[in-house]
């Protein structure tokens, strides 16, 4: 780790940070085994997050955390508890690729919905960080993903799985009408047609709407807070839908 930190390939911000540490303390910065374990814990948390909540986790990671890291390579020598943002982002991009979640669910036939989804994925997969911040190779991550999915397996639908294209289009379309994104129709005699939509799928639709909203014609234009609240309300309604589906009482 110390060789990697001090390599010539390291970003200039890191070199400056290490030089400042050495000047201030009269000795070079040493990355300890404990520091490494703390970084791994954070990276494993990110791994669990994205495998549980799918691309929606990554979208929140990028939208909320990136602005907090104006210098994405900083290791914070005084307290290096978290890996630099660039490492975390690059790892999530790699996970999207090894899981196949970097490919849109919708197709060109879905028109504006597909354009919006493509825009959202572009937002996530945009990665201009130095190669130095690539911490794992794809084979490492494939093994890690398989390991975590093995943990999820006994718990049924715990991990993220993409929704079907028609379902996604319907969820986004509801947001364009200012409605909570759920799949709950009725047939001609009034019998409900309810669908179990996972939390991660609802949130995926929410992020597609938010990132791709300029491509979506709709009756309303939602701000971020309202989009968030509609998705939150959908999760609450989904809970009721799922109780009904489990009980089989429609």
């Amino acid at each position: 780790m110390n060789a990697w930190l001090n390599s010539t390939a390291a970003h200039q911000d890191v070199k400056n940070e290490l030089a400042a540490y050495a000047a201030q303390n009269g000795r070079p910065f040493v990355f300890t085994k404990e520091n490494r374990e703390l970084w791994l814990i954070e990276l494993i948390c990110d791994l669990f997050g994205v495998l549980l909540f799918g691309p929606a986790f990554f979208a929140a990671h990028r939208a909320y955390l990136q602005p907090l890291h104006p210098s994405p390579y900083t290791i914070k020598t005084a307290q290096p508890t978290h890996p630099p943002f660039a490492i975390r982002h690059k790892m999530l991009v790699q996970i999207m690729r090894v899981t196949g979640w970097d490919v849109p669910i919708t197709s060109a036939a879905d028109g504006a919905f597909h354009i919006a989804e493509t825009e959202m994925l572009r937002f996530l997969l945009d990665d201009t960080y130095d190669q130095w911040s690539r911490f794992f190779d794809d084979a490492d991550l494939r093994r890690a993903v398989a390991g975590v999915q093995k943990i999820f397996a006994p718990h049924g639908s715990l991990g993220y799985a993409p929704i079907n294209p028609a379902g996604l289009v319907k969820l986004i379309e509801r947001l364009t009408r200012g409605l909570p994104p759920i799949l709950a129709d009725i047939d001609q005699d009034g019998t409900p047609q309810l669908t179990d939509v996972r939390i991660s799928q609802t949130l995926y639709a929410g992020w597609v709407y938010w990132i791709g909203r300029q491509h979506l014609a709709g009756a309303v234009t939602l701000d971020f807070l309202t989009t968030n609240r509609l998705c939150d309300h959908a999760l609450l309604q989904q809970r009721a839908i799922n109780y009904t589906l489990i009980a089989g009482v429609t």
Binding site: I182, P192, T244, V249
Partner: peptide
Amino acid sequence: SPLLSKAQI
């Protein structure tokens, strides 16, 4: 929405 049972209408 959502309507959860036919009897709701």
